[in-house]
Amino acid sequence: MGLLTNLKDSISRVTDGLFAADEPKRIGIYGPPNAGKTTLANRIARDWTGDAVGPESHIPHETRRARRKENVEIERNGRKVTIDIVDTPGVTTKVDYKEFLDHDMEKDDAVRRSREATEGVAEAMHWLREDVDGVIYVLDSTTDPFTQVNTMLIGIIESQDLPALILANKTDLPGSDVQQIANAFPQHETIPLSALEGDNMDEVYTKIAEYFG
């Protein structure tokens, strides 16, 4: 089965390459909850299409369904790159409704949010397996990147040979430590940014065009 699956993957990638070279690449925005994925997705979408992707929130697991923004055309150095942005729910190994109770949420709502968040993680993992051509991995640079989730996801991305861009987000916050993230994943290039403030977005777009163009 593994062999056949691998064969299928190989064939589909070859055919994708042959017949769908002009199709927009689907770029999944991945990362742990509250890293700023939706903020980044909205920033990119607004900058290049004028629309937003989804609501942002400081409450974890605001994004509980993957949302796609199609045909985002990014222009860099006279060259256009068209991508579909997939904003995915934050990936985690534990979801507990109690963490939502701190955000003035009723228990019923918190339990429902928790269930939806869990479904969202399943969906995100499914997208990673089936539906993305590249990954923008967003990390909160004020938190420790050495987590099981980060290690596992980066490992999966690498095993899939997906092009991956690591973004150290929230550089506008005082505790931001970009170097810590660069040290955690030295095999990848780490780009600092503040998706909220729009800091260093130029470099982010340049790298997106370079990695996924």
Binding site: V95, V111, S114, R115, T118, E119, A122, M125
Partner: peptide
């Protein structure tokens, strides 16, 4: 198990299992 329901509203997820399985959980 890819998703373990510890109690209502409390879940533990086996990411590798979720990633490995071909079918996709759409609703708990």
């Amino acid at each position: 198990e890819s998703i373990r329901i510890v109690s209502p509203g409390k879940y533990e997820l086996n990411l590798m299992e979720l990633y490995d399985r071909q079918e996709y959980i759409i609703s708990l």
